[in-house]
Amino acid sequence: MEERKVSKGIPVGTRRVISYIVLIFFALLCLIWFYILLINSTRSHAEMTKGFTPIPSTHFLDNWTNLVNGTIPILNGFINSFIVSGCVALLSAYFSAMTAFAIHAYEFKGKRAAASFILAVMMVPGQVTALGFIQLINRMKMDDTLFPLILPAIAAPITYFYLKQYMEANLPMSLVEAARIDGASEIRIFNSIILPIMRPAMSVQLIFAFVGSWNNYFTPALILHTDKRKTLPVLIAQLRGADWLRFDMGQVYIMIAASIFPVVIVYLVMSKFIVGGISSGAVKG
């Protein structure tokens, strides 16, 4: 490990230089792939067969038009991915806040058991129940539709966990009491008082849920069979499965770019909140 070498003798200035060099190295390591992706999505297939150059070319729009007019229903993929991810984000944020509110604000029998249960199942991965899930979806006649990808988001233990943490720190019960005295119904209290207070935490969770769903590949690949109903990750897998060497590489790169960059842009705009939101639910030392 590096620390062992950094004895008291090394001046702070040298240590600072070393840490900047290492940080810049890892930052470049993270960025270089996106740079190559961006460059290659502006180059035509013919240009790319001649080898790599770090200078962008002019075929960005050509590649995009070729992709849209090609055999892969990319626009449908976009729309499907947006519908699924948008609905997942909204449902999981809204209902997780509701669940957190139930546990936080009320006293009832079985409350502790309910809270422990949600905490216990938090890490159980979806893959291990996929077999039964597919059977259930077939029986419900929801195979090859987007519903099985959306509806389960109502029960999102991890989102619940983060929102409950936030609620404990930021929601004084006196506020709820005051609203009750004013005669507000419990539903109304939740919708018009609790939700606005929860907005900062919920917007971070909205993004995480959206991104998680946008990137999800395992379940959609098992549920969606018709090309026009597939989401982007499933279409990308299809691209890999095709005889891709004969494929126009310009289209391959622009499709990857189109799947990645919407998330990157949202992330860069919101990064301040997101980077702060990652650690808020983790175990403190």
């Binding site: 997780s96 669940t99 009320y106 109502i154």
Partner: peptide, 8 residues
């Protein structure tokens, strides 16, 4: 409390 837990 119970009612709000139903959806989850």
């Amino acid at each position: 409390g119970y009612i709000f837990l139903i959806p989850f």
